[in-house]
């Protein structure tokens, strides 16, 4: 059951390539962290790093209260300046 955790700095760097994939998913539908992780096939704990950093910099936002299992859904938040294509 033990998780082999990747280097934290490496995981955090991944945010820069993962965020477009995450945003693409959230543009379709609001999702929880486990749902996002499943959709892109990555570990949930790494997704937490990316989602929270994206939330910090205004790309995503939680929606309402957590569901019955304790998970928030997150939504895409429109940016003034978007990346290219």
């Amino acid at each position: 059951m033990s998780t082999t955790k990747r280097d934290m700095r490496e995981v955090m760097r991944d945010e820069m390539i993962m965020r477009d994939r995450i945003l693409a998913i959230l543009k379709e539908e609001n999702k929880t962290v486990p749902e996002i992780a499943e959709a892109i096939g990555v570990p949930e704990y790494e997704t937490v790093y990316w989602m929270m950093a994206m939330r910090r910099y205004g790309m995503v936002e939680e929606v309402g209260r957590p569901d019955i299992d304790g998970y928030f859904k997150y939504e895409f938040r429109e940016q003034e300046e978007e990346g290219h294509e």
Partner: peptide
């Protein structure tokens, strides 16, 4: 956005 588990945001 709250006290959440780092493993999965729960």
């Amino acid at each position: 956005n709250g006290v959440l588990r780092p493993s999965d945001g729960k």
